[in-house]
Design a protein around this nucleic acid. Structure first.
Length: 694
DNA sequence: CCTGACTCA
DNA sequence: CATTTGAGTCAGG
């Protein structure tokens, strides 16, 4: 029901007798740390009541002379308002002895006065509500971090409550990777397949009232109905999904996620500081280079086509290459000609270098610089419901795929020697099957691969990680789990010898494999490169790759790949047993549990995926577990967790805590319930994430 | 194997 | 005509 100044005290009194609440906020949009704000708050209680507190709905409406808008004609007729004028929601017009209240809610020609005033509650009641939530024991929501962010912006301090996200539980109980997990779909899946589609109703309302970015104009009555339906659905889902989670034996996973939700909530709200100066400067340089490259592309293509070619269009690339009598050797999944990096490397034509260069520049500019131009701090969204394995995913922006390597700005001047050429081709071929062609030498300069991660503020190099800096008085520290997935993989093997080996502080698994397979040790000049190849192959095995793909990655024949796999299995005692036992479980009963009790369902013909799910998922859950411990430790400190990239944590360490915090964080990260010998490397990143100070 | 962002069609 | 959807490419683990 809709709360007003008249009944708010009574309702707050009722709420004070509760300790468990379902929360759902309504806002003007999704950017709560930027332009958007809370328009209303919905609160549900265990007796299934739902209350909507309107906070900042628009209270001024202009009456337009619009034939399509029946409500306004009606308002005009029944209330005596004038077209073109602005009215407050609390305005009352008396006509023939009847009071009419200005409301947007009068939809059809029912000429009746509106008795309830559609008005926001006074701010003081909102803060009283926040106070009640601060003293609660459990807060329940659907995608609850979003709602909590909106409330945190208004004084909520959820420091002790259980924060239960029904979306997280829905993910845990949904076996289909592509399933729609929005509230309505989830409700239909778990509660009632024929549930009323309030979302559609909402959409129709928005369209009818021409509401797009002006969500504050939504009528509070209407919003209340929508919000209370959300609350009702969420409440029912909470009961059903909790039961489902326990029935499936995933209570431990749930406890982990409840903690993780709080950790992530604060990671997101701290945000990451952006170097505005570097952003603006680099953005300008990129703009200049983008048009330069566009011109150069035109120089090449104009002999065949007077129009400029957009090389971001797969279609147009094909058309122009055909005019040069060049055809792609490979097709995409949908049967179109493929013009990806691997294909381009096999073509000897001046265009390919420019295409690669243009793609790189546009991606950098449009993904990592343009969106941050106006931002001082960015608040990403980490999702503990984003993956089927249990890893986090991250969006707006995705901080988990910020490029590691530097990009050369002036590729024309760059000299690429033969050694580097080989590396570029090999690096590229790691990601796709080999084409067999040789690359055109000159165009390789555009590949911009440097192998360097360290940024030295050189004018001709661009680093995206250079954008990320710390607040004044804080320093960025990076904590990196060394070869974590491998260590988790090994923990599944009955192999005490390698386990002991891993406890040695200088143990490096990829070097170990490199020596084993290629016979190259640290003294070999190309050791670093071949270690990189070994790394890719190990991951391939963990991913459950077949012999054909493995051969492609190794650049060897399928026969040799088989030999390599056999050698790997024989040297890695217990590895074959583990993989076969996973296959057997999936084939026998259809699911496996990871180390935190997360359950993975798989069809028998995809049993090989189970190996990856267990390793990736146990690793993901283990990192979240350790993150939660670090978060708890930092609660009493000034330093704070600001980012997670699967096996790396970024912490802003306060200048007065540099002595104590890093060693304790390492200790907390390496500790675990499974006796896995984890190893964490730490680096101070100053002045930015791109700079690693040893 | 697990992701997300941007662009084009 | 605006909005949604799938594909392609490429960044990370």
């Amino acid at each position: 029901m809709l709360v007003s100044n008249e009944n708010v005290e009574e309702i707050l009194g009722k709420l004070r007798r509760n300790k468990i609440f379902v929360v759902d906020i309504e806002t003007t949009g999704l950017h709560l740390y930027n332009k958007d704000y809370v328009t209303g708050v919905g609160i549900g209680t265990s007796d299934r009541s739902a209350y909507y507190f309107p906070i900042s709905h628009a209270t001024h409406w202009k009456i337009f002379d619009d034939k399509d808008s029946t409500e306004l004609i009606c308002a005009n007729l029944c209330g005596g308002w004038e077209f073109g004028k602005s009215y407050d929601v609390s305005d009352v017009v008396v006509k023939e002895g009847i009071s009419y209240v200005c409301t947007k809610n009068v939809i059809n020609s029912e000429v009746e006065p509106c008795k309830d005033m559609v008005q926001n509650i006074d701010k003081i009641y909102f803060y009283k509500l926040i106070d009640i939530l601060n003293n609660s024991n459990i807060l329940i929501g659907f995608n609850i971090k979003f709602d909590l962010h909106g409330l945190i912006r208004n004084g909520l301090k959820p420091d002790h409550q259980r924060l239960v996200d029904c979306l997280v539980m829905a993910r845990m109980c949904t076996h289909n990777r592509f399933a729609d997990l929005d509230l309505l779909s989830t409700y239909k899946n778990f509660i009632d397949a024929n549930a009323h589609d309030h979302k559609l109703e909402y959409k129709v309302y928005l369209k009818k009232h021409k509401i797009k970015d002006n969500r504050e104009d939504i009528d509070a009555y209407f919003q209340s109905g929508y919000c209370c339906t959300d609350i009702q659905y969420t409440t029912e889902l909470y009961t059903a999904l909790t039961r489902e989670v326990y029935k499936a034996g995933m209570s431990r996973t749930l406890e982990l996620e409840v903690e993780t939700t709080r950790t992530l909530l604060f990671v997101e709200s701290f945000g990451n500081k952006i170097d505005k100066h570097y952003c603006a400067k680099t953005h300008a340089e990129l703009n200049r280079k983008v048009s330069e490259t566009e011109d150069k592309i035109f120089e090449i293509t104009k002999e065949k086509d007077p129009e400029r070619v957009n090389v971001l269009s797969n279609l147009q690339i094909g058309v122009i290459f055909h005019k040069f009598d060049i055809h792609s050797p490979t097709k995409t999944a949908a049967g179109k000609e493929c013009w990806d990096e691997k294909v381009l490397l096999g073509i000897d034509h001046p265009l390919v270098g420019k295409i690669k260069e243009y793609r790189t520049l546009r991606k950098l500019r449009d993904t990592y610089f343009t969106p941050f131009l106006e931002e001082e701090y960015i608040h990403p969204s980490f999702k503990n419901w984003g993956t089927i394995t249990g890893r986090l995913s991250c969006s707006e922006p995705n901080l988990q795929n910020i490029p590691r390597y530097l990009t050369a700005l002036d590729t024309d001047k760059k000299v690429i020697d033969e050694e580097k050429q080989k590396k570029i081709i090999a690096m590229a071929s790691l990601h796709k099957t080999a084409s067999g062609n040789t690359a055109g030498g000159a165009s390789l300069a555009s590949w911009g691969y440097t192998g360097d991660e360290d940024f030295k503020d050189a004018d001709d190099m661009i680093s995206v990680r250079r954008l990320f800096i710390s607040r004044p008085d804080f320093f960025l520290y990076s904590f990196d789990f060394s070869q974590m997935e491998i260590r988790v993989f090994i923990s599944y093997l009955k192999n005490p010898r390698i386990f002991e080996e891993m406890r040695k502080s200088d143990f490096d698994f990829h070097s170990f494999v490199c020596k084993l397979v290629f016979g190259y040790d640290e003294t070999h000049p190309e050791f670093k490169f071949w270690r990189q190849i070994s790394k890719a192959i190990t991951f391939g095995l963990i991913y459950g790759m077949g012999d054909d793909l493995l051969a492609g990655q190794m650049g060897k024949s399928i026969e040799e790949a088989k030999t390599f796999r056999a050698l790997y299995f024989s040297k890695m005692e217990g590895s074959l047993d583990f993989i076969e036992s996973v296959h057997k479980k999936v084939e026998d009963r259809g699911f496996v549990f990871n180390k935190y009790g997360r359950r993975y369902f798989l069809p028998a013909n995809r049993s090989y995926v189970g190996v990856n799910y267990l390793i990736q998922g146990s690793t993901g859950d283990l990192v979240k577990d350790r993150m939660n411990h670090v978060y708890r430790y930092l609660e009493t400190k000034r330093s704070r967790l600001i980012n997670q990239i699967h096996d790396e944590l970024l912490i802003e360490v306060h200048k007065d805590e540099e002595k104590d915090v890093p060693p304790e964080v390492i200790r907390l990260l390496e500790e675990n319930d499974f006796g896995i010998p984890l190893k964490v490397d730490v680096a101070k990143c100053y002045p930015s994430w791109a700079h690693k100070v040893k």
